[in-house]
Design a protein around this nucleic acid. Structure first.
Lengths: 358, 358
DNA sequence: CGACGGTGTCGAATCGATTCGATCGAAACG
DNA sequence: CGTTTCGATCGAATCGATTCGACACCGTCG
């Protein structure tokens, strides 16, 4: 065995061993051209003898101009990005449309100053996920690459296909339900306002400085109905954060306490409910809680949450389809998906003024 | 502008415009060789004028022999793989070691018959995650590629660097605690036994056919103490599955009901606890529940779970380090991490025989 | 029997960079 | 002033495939 040590065999080596030209060997592996059965067999046999795994992906990509990789750019850490059930559902949808077509998903946690180089990552297209206003930064370098860009719930940007949700409209719809029931003191529990994810009371300054698109839109929708609603921003979309927010909002004199909370995610809503229960505040009799997302809450809360159900899986599918269309040379349409109010059992009329529950 | 339509400019074009050779332009972008400041400026200016994003990743990869991409192969669907908090923690650890070094993570949901082609995905190394015995399949094709392979909690395979957890030992340790407290009727709630994830009672046949390594190891550890322990296998590591398993195990005549449940994950344990509470079975007085993982359960259960805490983030870091070492030409050592028993408040002595709780 | 169509194979060009060794001019040195 | 040295630049080879057009061969049809 004077064979080259443990280095990967090349297609050329296989071809040589099979006694054919490299072009023919290539035909065998790509299945594009007509190859005589005998020849094919000989090539495959040579490949097996050399333990050849198939053409080098990098070389193939260079020549073909396609890598088979779709980038998923997120501004969160790897773990955080997937800690949100909505993103997981989205991933499921993406998988339906992309992984099943043989595409791989390259996850790129990008933050200003991160060492991830969006210019150097091999990919055929990119999906911008959970992105904030800093998006513009990353979009610039990605656009230079002339690859299709799809953004999930992001501010409009030229050349980027938006996959949107009717965040403001849905939030307004939910808020209207509360107003119709008679609520007046309503508090918001929002998603993080920016990449810092600092938890804290909503102030005009903080809201103005917010870079998170989804949170801002949902605030906007709620304020269309309750212009003066205050609240707190959470540090993430988790039950724990909702619980903390709930405590902050509910541990106040009864007269000041909101009669309804509009949470910007179901997990936050579940946390608020838990906080309420611990404080002896009955849901929905003393406090109405409205969620957003429509995820399954098995085992997290036994309440049937009233919430705005968003088509999260479909969002992923739409993004996947948009990517595929763009890659096929078409110009994908912008998509706006709509959320639907689901009446659960956590929203009711406010308690009579001055009245005590029980 | 007779410039080429909208096609990506090449390094050669930039070089030509700057009046230098391609090699020099390359030096500018890679920063490897000495370049006069004036020249560098000229090249960068030319690049800006052409809206050049930097050297083509594919071509660079081909020449350099590195893609900057690490594959993460899982046998679950995209969403499912990340629905497990343990995997998320692992991802955090991986991110620490890899994303921070500029590597991207290419997620490849691979199942027999899937359209994802492990032979064609561009990557420098692969991490096998949550893999079963079907692993051998994927390992074969990956090994032909001569790339470093790291497997998380998988059966030993030649040429694959194992990052392991003391699953059996830890489970045994937990079981011993229960025995010391006097438990005799103990039931298991296991992770899925195979890729089918069918929920159902444990039978010798099903256990023998199990392909999931982690589940099998933890069963083995528990059986070392309670050789006859029965139980059910869950369809996933979720509260909902635990709840279902709990109902199956606890809705039986008191005399047959187990006094302790060994759950193979904290989420399963939380589900079991919820089922117990609904049935009026007090934890830990009537039923002890032992978990595994040591994840945060804020908002999922208010019990302080007694559990085996595994260093999940460290697992990811170890995997990341192993990959980096292998890529640097070293031979990474196998790693076995150890779990630690955390005494919470969900395990106690069994109720006196025949006794009724309050 | 010659033109034709189809199949199977091959050679050469190409994808877009990186890198090694050579070259050249200028500064430093004896 | 000749030589050495170093910094800057360039040419050419290379990475490993894919693809296009050319070509040879064979059977068929007119």
């Amino acid at each position: 065995m004077s064979d080259t040590a443990n280095t990967r065999p090349t297609l050329a080596a296989v071809a040589a061993r099979a006694g054919v030209s490299a072009s023919t060997a290539s035909l065998v592996f790509s299945g594009r051209g007509p190859v005589a059965d005998a020849t094919r067999a000989r090539v495959l046999e040579a490949a097996a003898e050399l333990d050849f795994a198939g053409p080098d992906p990098t070389a193939r990509s260079l020549r073909r101009g396609r890598t088979g990789v779709i980038g998923v750019v997120t501004e969160d850490s790897l773990g955080d990005a997937f800690r949100d059930p909505i993103n997981l559902a989205l991933l499921d949808g993406l998988g339906d449309e992309l992984a099943d077509e043989g595409y791989g998903l390259l996850v790129l946690p990008w933050a200003p100053g991160s060492s991830v180089d969006l210019a150097a990552a091999p990919m055929d297209a990119a999906i911008l996920l959970g992105c904030s206003a800093d998006l513009a930064h990353s979009v610039e370098v990605l656009q230079q690459r002339r690859i299709p860009l799809v953004a999930i719930e992001a501010p409009e940007l030229p050349g980027v296909v938006p996959i949107d949700l009717d965040n403001a409209e849905a939030a307004r719809h939910g808020a209207e339900l509360l107003r119709e029931l008679g609520h007046e003191r309503v508090a918001l529990v929002t998603l993080p306002l920016d990449v810092d994810r600092t938890r804290g009371a909503l102030t005009p300054e903080r809201e103005a400085a917010a870079t998170a698109f989804t949170a801002s839109e949902r605030i906007r929708g709620a304020r269309a109905v309750f212009p003066d609603a205050g609240g707190v921003s959470a540090g993430g979309s988790t039950v724990g954060e909702g619980y903390a927010a709930g405590q902050a909002l509910l541990q106040v004199p009864d007269a000041e306490r909101p009669t309804a909370v509009i949470a910007q995610s179901d997990l936050l809503a579940a946390g608020v409910i838990r906080a309420a229960e611990e404080l002896g505040i009955a849901v929905p009799d003393d406090l109405s809680v409205l969620g957003f997302d429509g995820i399954r809450l098995d085992g997290i809360t036994s309440h049937a949450l009233t919430t705005l159900v968003q088509p999260a899986v479909e969002k992923g599918r739409a993004a996947g389809r948009a990517v595929r269309a763009a890659l096929a040379g078409d110009t994908p349409d912008a998509v706006t998906l709509t959320s639907e109010l689901r009446r659960g059992a956590t929203v009711a009329a406010p308690p009579p003024p001055g009245g005590q529950s029980l």
